[in-house]
Amino acid sequence: MEPRRRDLWQAWWRSFTVQGSWNYRTLVAPGVTYALLPLLRRIHSEEPERLQESVLRHLDSFNTHPYLSSLAVGALARLEFEGASDDEITRFRVALRGPLGTLGDRTVWAEWRPFCLLVSITLFGLGLNPLWCALVFLGVYNAGHLWIRVWGFRCGWQQGREVGRLLRAFPFQRFADRLWPVTMYLLGAATVLLGRAVVATADGGTSSRWLLFIAGLMVVPAFRWPNQFGRLAVGLLLTIPILWILLALTG
């Protein structure tokens, strides 16, 4: 039986929760199955055994970026609706999980989110009200987020097994891939603005030129050895209060 509009809405909405039961063995499979259920119930409404078989199939290990899970849900539901064989659906799931994970990671986590965060941080550094800065971040970021979810679900449901072709030309990726120069520009601007705010909290107790020199010295090797310098930064954070206590005790 063909899913109703209400079932499609329910599945799309449920796709927001796919990581709710994330676990180390089957990853997002229970969440994706949870999102698929309103559609599977409708599609297999006349054959309860097929519903059980289908749920069992989808509970097998699966991975996707959470935002692109809507695409997986739409496409898998289309295959079920078209009566694809167990073997075909299994192969389709295996083929889909890699690209959906890496594409989402590269586009959303590595490009889109840092860009939106840095826009907000730069606006804050320039003196905009912090609550407005927060709203700018949430508004801009989630415009992209929701676009991906809506696009993914529509394409998945309409294209079914053809989604692989669409993923190769994922429009959001082309857009996000061009963002890095702006993101890097904002990173430079935000560094100086935040550094200035940090110096202001030191209440004139230190020279900003000296600090700028240190920052300049640190930032290049940190790019070369991100993990080591990240740990160094955290180590410094942990030891400063101890150092302060020692300095206070020694007068």
Partner: peptide
């Protein structure tokens, strides 16, 4: 302290 926070900032930016 200020040097450490700025170092932290620089290391964060780099990574």
């Amino acid at each position: 302290g200020a040097t450490a926070v700025v170092t932290l900032l620089a290391a964060s930016i780099g990574s």
